[in-house]
Write a protein that binds this DNA or RNA. Structure first.
Length: 714
DNA sequence: TAGATACCGT
């Protein structure tokens, strides 16, 4: 129990279950406070580090022309000012100008204000304060009108002697504009170098200047830049014991993936605050080392909402959803407020678990607090409902979202694909690129290709695979190849799929070979399977599924000698197959768990009796058990007996007993549904007039009127 | 100066 880390949850993820007579609700619904929605190490070394970083920065199309010009010379027919001309005493004048800066909608307005400010008789502190605010506002002007760096340098040069406060504001301007244009992310380093060259020791720097350099290093994920920011902050700034700067440096090292360097700065800090602690926790969450994250979090003396949230999202990102929800519950029990970010972590955990009641509770929190308008929360809800089996609810959330981005579309497309609604997924992709003008990325195409694969749409799949590269400039990754191999292989084009793998310039990973092995299973290609499996066993020696799959393929072909060889190999590797298990959530919210051949449920006699009756009824309708689905060398009677003990049949029988005709029965299974159970459930949906939704380890099957949404492609 | 979402095969 407690296995974590598969793409869809196993039964073990349920927080509590009904088994061996022990009944507990799946989840309790705690009460907690909700916050209101948000309103909206030496001189030469330092120089060398800095030179390395600035040299690594590509030349920037004239943006770094550091030739100051008098601001007035740039004035060209300014528009009429949208504010009253200041005829007030000096303090009020500064206040009026500040209001005017905040309210200025465009670069021309701000330019006009700049001209005005430098002409007015303002005290020096007011002047630098206003100009720094002006720089901040200038950096927020949307891209087409975004002022060039040369203009910001003019602002800086408006004041003499050079002012440290304005220098920090100038660096921040460089950072913000570079971030906005996603170009020249290391621009602040260039500006810093220039300021050093022009003013030398005549211009001291404030700590904020170095935190901006650290931020710029973090944004560019450049470890040399982080090291350079570190070096100059100590050697030029003398800030080797400044908490603010140290925290920024930790953040930069974390963003660049150097946990060791981050930890070194942290360990050497004399005074640590919650931000220092949280940064280290995050460093371990991101590197997948939740054990160390737990240890550091445990030692953190004062924990705030952000620190707690870092743990929730850390667990969620590392496929430990049960722990994520436990931490989320603890933080709410302690009276911490919940905001969009912490809720996003809980949503992700619910999506991984597929727990319906908990998901509904999370949505209620989101709606009650207006978080539903948040694009990240909304996208998360779409994903969550899809993974809980409620594709229509996912679509409702999606349609209700005012703003959608590539995550929102990709979640919805992948959701539709996993529910077998391929044409809807393709239509949505077309809407995304043609009407909404949202640029697809590599993840979007995984969803599109999966949709094609699950519906046998070979032509469409080939078309989008080509379009991805030719139209959108996205080079296919091994994952995209895995989708294509799956698509071709399922459709029976196993040889073509093998050719595609052999033509790859990228090294095929387990996903690619695994898809091919799956195709061999469907189409009974025992000989190819053996070759494919060899690649897989080398790449993933401990992935039990590969051995089981090969063994099953060989068993279906009656090659029992080969089967025993594979089983021997498994024993040698000390690998043991996961037992098959199905979960059924009753109307009362209790989760009932059934293992294959299980007699443990309190109502087992009733369940088996009902199942036998059901089998007899189906046989009258033409049902013939698919004995081939049993991969053991036993006689046909025994095969049929084993088939009738399959966990999803037990869960279905119990579902029918408790819910009855006309209802929707939802079953979660940890392994792939077998051919016989698939046929069986299809027939039950017709004969008993029920809808049955089964989530297997990869996707959803919606059974209705004798048909399944997967159309046989699973 | 710290915390956010989507994806392949078995």
């Amino acid at each position: 129990m407690g296995r974590q880390g598969c793409s869809l949850p196993t039964a073990a993820h349920a927080t509590s279950v009904c088994r061996r007579g022990r009944e507990k609700p799946l989840v309790s619904l705690p009460k907690f406070p909700i916050c209101p929605p948000n309103p909206s190490h030496h001189g030469a070394a330092a120089a060398a580090s800095l030179a390395a970083v600035t040299a690594a920065t590509p030349a920037g199309g004239g943006m770094v022309r550091l030739v100051p010009r008098p601001p007035l010379a740039r004035l060209r027919s300014p528009p009429p000012p949208a504010f009253p001309l200041p005829l007030l005493p000096a303090p009020s004048l500064a206040a009026t100008l500040l209001d005017a800066i905040s309210a200025s909608p465009s670069f021309p307005h701000l330019r006009h204000l700049h001209a005005l400010i430098v002409r007015l008789p303002l005290p020096p502190t007011s002047l630098t304060f206003l100009l720094s605010r002006l720089l901040r506002r200038l950096a927020a002007v949307p891209l087409p009108q975004l002022p060039p760096l040369s203009y910001a340098l003019n602002v800086f040069s408006s004041v003499s002697p050079p002012d440290p406060f304005l220098a920090a504001a100038l660096l921040r301007f460089a950072f913000l504009t570079a971030a906005q244009s996603r170009f020249l992310l290391l621009l602040p380093f260039r500006v810093f170098s220039r300021l050093r060259r022009d003013h030398g020791a005549g211009l001291p720097f404030l700590p904020y200047a170095f935190s901006t350099l650290a931020k710029s290093a973090a944004a560019s994920k450049s470890l040399p830049a982080a090291a350079a920011a570190h070096a100059v902050s100590v050697l030029v700034g003398g800030f080797d014991r400044h908490r603010f700067v140290e925290n920024s440096l930790i953040g930069a090292y974390v963003a660049c993936g150097d946990v060791g360097a981050a930890r070194k700065v942290f360990d050497e800090m004399v005074v640590k605050d919650v931000i220092s602690w949280t940064s280290i926790v995050v460093a371990y969450s991101r590197s997948g080392d939740m054990g160390s994250a737990e240890e550091v979090f445990g030692r953190c003396p004062v924990k705030d909402m952000v620190a707690w949230t870092a743990m929730v999202t850390g667990y969620a990102q590392n496929a430990m959803p049960v722990k994520a929800l436990q931490v989320f519950d603890r933080m709410t029990a302690l009276g911490m407020v919940i905001d969009e970010v912490s809720l996003t972590g809980a949503i992700s955990a619910c999506a991984q678990l597929g727990v319906v009641r908990r998901a509904a509770w999370v949505q209620e929190i989101a709606e009650r607090n207006g978080f539903g308008n948040n694009i990240v929360v909304g996208s998360g809800l779409v994903d969550m409902f899809s993974k809980c089996g409620f594709i229509d609810e996912a679509r409702t959330v999606f349609d209700g979202m005012q703003e959608k981005n590539v995550y929102t579309y990709s979640s919805m497309i992948a959701g539709l694909a996993s529910h077998g609604r391929a044409s809807e997924a393709i239509d949505l992709f077309k809407e995304m690129v043609n009407r909404a003008n949202v640029e697809p990325n590599h993840v979007t195409f995984i969803g599109v290709l999966t949709a094609c694969s699950h519906a046998g749409m070979v032509g469409e799949g080939r078309y989008y695979f080509a379009q991805m590269k030719d139209k959108y400039g996205i080079m296919p990754s091994a994952d995209h190849y895995a989708c294509m191999v799956d698509l071709l292989g399922r459709a029976g084009l196993v040889d073509e799929a093998l050719d595609l793998v052999r033509s790859m310039t990228l090294k095929p990973h387990g996903g690619v070979w695994g898809a091919l092995l799956g195709a061999c299973r469907i189409h009974g290609k025992g000989e190819i399977a053996k070759v494919v499996a060899e690649h897989l066993f080398k790449l993933e020696p401990e992935a039990i599924g590969n051995y089981v799959l090969l063994s099953n393929i060989l068993a279906s072909a009656g090659k029992w000698d080969d089967v025993s060889k594979v089983r021997k190999l498994m024993r040698k590797q000390r690998l043991k197959k996961d037992p098959a298990v199905s979960l059924f959530e009753g109307r009362d919210g209790l989760v009932h768990q059934f293992f294959a051949g299980d007699n443990a449920h309190p109502r087992t006699q009733e369940i088996k009796k009902a199942l036998l009756k059901l089998v007899a009824k189906l046989k009258l309708e033409g049902y013939v058990p698919i004995l081939n689905s049993i991969v053991y060398d036993v006689n046909d009677d025994e095969k049929e007996r084993l088939l009738m003990g399959h966990s999803e049949k037990l869960a279905l029988s119990f579902g029918l007993l408790t819910l009855g005709s006309g209802s929707t029965i939802r079953i979660i299974k940890n392994l792939r549904i077998c051919d016989d159970c698939h046929l069986f459930i299809r027939l039950v949906s017709r004969v008993e007039s029920v809808e049955i939704v089964v989530r297997d380890n990869m996707r959803f099957h919606h059974f209705k009127n004798g048909e399944c949404s997967c159309g046989g492609f699973w």
